[in-house]
Design a protein around this nucleic acid. Structure first.
Lengths: 203, 203
DNA sequence: CCGTCCCCTGAGCAACCGCTTAGCCGCCTT
DNA sequence: AAGGCGGCTAAGCGGTTGCTCAGGGGACGG
């Protein structure tokens, strides 16, 4: 069963090999039991090394979380920006944005869980940096919706509230998604894109 | 600032007084830092007693979480059932359900956070009991949507998927809601009810 | 063959964890 | 006045935590 296995290729740009193995191990452990409930011994054990080896590659446990959170947030932001800058009508761009954002949170739901639910465990300066990335994501999603309103394709009485709701809806997929469930990430992405387009559709 | 203060009257049926103070303290602590990052010394300290006093009223830390989770889930289920059994068209019942469910998750966002995000910290038998309550909530929400589809008031291609998305959307309010923010729980409830009705509205 | 560098380990430290125990104190009943 | 009882505390136990440190060993250049 590789249902729990974190895809390694998503972290392929992390070197050396041992550091990458630590990140993959930490993502699995954090997603399963939460940051605070995960011990450095557990992370090191999953990566096949002794507890002390962790501190050669990372200053401490929090920096591992920071690495994961940073990579995850940047990936999510990139997906949204690609959709926003891609061509097509506002409806097509919104559909693409929701579909790929949701699919990512389903496919990488372990990473997504860490990214979305362990923010509070970051140190203060790391926290503010990550919050900045989140604001960029929100601005990107809002710009798509604003485009649709401006062109008359969308009817949205409360743009910022709807933006918040759409992002919240997508993000929460990471919480409930179960790889053994009936729906594939693609199907959920399609379903959610339909639902979001209904939210902004004129009567 | 009582922005962080958990409303005490929500736990008024817990006696004796010391046990209630412990629950209120635990809700605040769990919501702020998570179950595993919260120490029994911290809970007891917030409640104004020594660490040992906790074990007079509760068997252990997990039973405190179980108490909170049980009360919270039962309250949420009651809100949904009142909306489902209340009169009116399916649209009116769906609007009431979303509005009151969302408002509860915003007003009691500390409790909501514990209820929704600390499920995994429950022991196995407590966990399965709580999961049963969650299934009842889902069934209640689905029945409202099914009613609307049957009567022709709603157009919903995927009933169970839409049910999941609606509940997910409402639940996630507990994660991002900030009492110092621009929107009141009532406003968010109203906004979300509008958005959900758009999701099920026929063309 | 030697030294250097990098990656790693075994052992362990100080702090902290959940939880227990023995006993104190004020209140109620008799 | 005597006794019991529920609610509480001070002290502390065994175990675990994040993290450190001294040193091993293999690959490499000279």
């Amino acid at each position: 069963m590789d249902a729990e296995a974190t895809d390694t290729e998503a972290w392929s740009d992390i070197t050396p090999d041992a550091a990458r193995r630590l990140v993959v191990a930490a993502v699995e452990a954090f997603a399963e039991r939460g940051y605070h409930a995960t011990t450095t011994r557990d992370i090191a054990g999953r990566a096949g090394m002794s507890p002390a080896a962790l501190y050669i590659h990372y200053k401490n446990k929090e920096e591992l979380l920071y690495q994961i959170s940073g990579v995850g947030h940047r990936r999510a932001l990139t997906l949204l920006r690609q959709a926003a800058e891609g061509g097509g009508t506002p409806a097509e761009r919104l559909r693409t944005a929701v579909r790929s954002f949701v699919r990512w949170h389903a496919e990488h739901h372990t990473t997504g869980r860490v990214v979305q639910y362990e923010l509070g465990a970051l140190g203060p300066e790391h926290h503010t940096e990550i919050v900045g990335l989140r604001r960029l994501s929100e601005a990107t999603m809002r710009s798509i919706i604003e485009d649709g309103v401006r062109s008359g394709d969308f009817d949205v009485p409360d743009v910022s509230g709807t933006t918040l709701a759409v992002l919240s809806l997508c993000i929460d997929v990471a919480r409930w998604f179960n790889p053994g469930g009936r729906r594939t990430p693609d199907q959920i992405g399609e379903l959610y894109a339909d639902l979001v387009l209904r939210m902004v559709r004129p009567e």
